[in-house]
């Protein structure tokens, strides 16, 4: 869901050396980059360092950059490469770091205010519990798909897997989550029937 027209122009102005365009690009995508970074590593300092380096390099090499259809795609993919490269250089990095990705329940956002409907809130709560049991790669793919709104093709390129694998991550995750919702919906139906009978 990128808007290629305006973003093309912004990218062009930035490459001409316009600092306002540069800052606009940062402001537009910093939140998404910080958000996505958490899918790749739990190390917040590493995420911020990588975003810092990414933007410094971006500014310094602006004259040599090529056209891009989607600035966001370019930034997200560069950030992921940067984080994984730094990590692979780090001798203390253990592969288990990825598996240990968990959520701080208070930290993440089901924003209760937004969900006024009590029943819907239960469904989301259930959804979140099942979500946390998904693999890190499934979670990453879902983030790219349903929060960052990338296409499956772009997700495959960002994650460095082939198209079929990207689709499989998403589809298998959706299937697991849907089952969780369905069980819960049945339970809700049963509860209301109980009330009805008594």
């Amino acid at each position: 869901m990128s808007t290629p027209d305006s973003s093309n122009e912004l990218w062009y102005t930035f490459r001409q050396g316009d600092e306002r365009a540069f800052q606009t690009i940062y402001r537009l995508y910093a939140h998404d980059l910080l958000n996505y970074g958490r899918k790749v590593t739990n190390d917040v300092a590493l995420i911020e360092d990588s975003i810092h380096d990414l933007f410094i390099e971006l500014w310094q090499s602006r004259a040599n950059l090529s056209d891009t259809d989607s600035i966001k795609f370019y930034l997200v993919r560069s950030l992921r490469n940067k984080i994984t490269r730094t990590r692979s250089r780090d001798p203390f990095f253990q592969a288990s770091d990825v598996d240990a990705l968990t959520f701080d329940v208070d930290d993440i956002g089901i924003e209760n205010k937004l969900i006024e409907d009590e029943e819907l809130r239960h469904v989301y709560e259930q959804l979140r519990k099942s979500y946390e049991r998904l693999t890190p790669r499934q979670q990453e793919a879902l983030n790219l798909r349903f929060y960052q709104h990338f296409s499956n093709e772009e997700i495959a390129r960002i994650m460095g897997v082939n198209y079929q694998s990207a689709c499989r991550f998403i589809y298998s995750a959706l299937k697991t989550l849907r089952e969780a919702i369905r069980i819960f919906s049945l339970y809700l139906a049963w509860i209301s029937m109980e009330q009805y009978l008594h």
Binding site: R38, Y124, Y131, I181
Partner: peptide
């Protein structure tokens, strides 16, 4: 619909404006 809307909610984090500014 619940899946799509729910996933968008789950992925949302509190906006970290302070961190965005500090990093800039």
């Amino acid at each position: 619909r619940q899946l799509v809307a729910g996933l968008e909610q789950i992925e949302k984090r509190p906006t970290e404006t302070v961190r965005v500014d500090a990093l800039w």
